[in-house]
């Protein structure tokens, strides 16, 4: 049997002795809500209950949900700034080195000589800062933009070809008109029966267990 049936809320929970240890068999529990408001209230309750590994899925951006979930501000902007600075530095050093014959790289090492070549263009001095600015500017933008996209994907765990949520039939409506909240089984606080009872108290349309 490849397909695990969706567990309805009415089904009796498994015996208690299994419940004292976090379940390794399921990915988590998913609660379905009808409105963004209901999801928002539920998110605040889950946040206050102290769960760490959980997420919300909505068809559109819901303003204030970040706050309701207690998500910390991302450090991405700081990293992008640092990468931008790295690009600027690289642009400067690259041109400084390539335009200056006096700047001798690895000159202390025997048998290796790498040095720049002075280009004389329209009577400008070799170290002519204004002419360097376009290259410095472009490299700053390049590094900042690539790092912004790359780190964003990394932090979001993307690209990801499979997600346990997709096993749920109801979840298809996450891109249409339903709002979902998933508590993952790997959460240190996760005890299946308690989590199920807790989600039930949030008054969802349904609760289902997601197979890993």
């Amino acid at each position: 049997m490849s397909q695990v049936p969706v567990m309805p809320t009415t089904q009796a929970p498994p015996p208690d002795e299994f419940e004292t240890v976090p379940s390794g068999k399921i990915y988590g529990l998913m609660a379905e809500f009808d409105t963004p408001g209901a999801l928002m209230i539920a998110a605040e309750r889950v946040r206050d209950a102290g769960y760490r590994w959980w997420d919300c899925h909505t068809p559109f951006a819901v303003h204030g949900l970040d706050k309701a979930m207690g998500i910390k501000p991302t450090i991405l902007p700081i990293l992008v700034f640092v990468c931008g600075l790295a690009g600027a530095t690289m642009g400067t050093v690259l041109q400084w080195f390539t335009n200056s014959s006096s700047f001798d790289l690895w000159s202390g090492l025997p048998g290796i000589m790498v040095r720049g070549y002075e280009f004389f263009i329209s009577g400008k001095p070799a170290s002519s800062f204004p002419t360097w600015i376009p290259v410095i500017f472009e490299l700053t933008i390049l590094f900042a933009a690539l790092s912004a996209v790359g780190l964003m994907l990394l932090f979001n765990g993307l690209p990801r070809l499979y997600h346990p949520c997709f096993k749920s039939k109801n979840f298809a409506r996450a891109t249409d008109d339903r709002f979902f909240l998933v508590i993952e089984a790997r959460d240190p606080k996760f005890v299946r029966s308690k989590a199920e009872a807790f989600l039930g108290s949030l008054d969802p349309l349904s609760i289902e267990a997601l197979e890993d």
């Binding site: 329209s122 009577g123 400008k124 204004p130 002419t131 600015i133 376009p134």
Partner: peptide
């Protein structure tokens, strides 16, 4: 500002 400066600086 830089675009204007750069072109005039470079053309000289």
């Amino acid at each position: 500002a830089f675009s204007q400066y750069m072109l005039i600086y470079y053309a000289n």
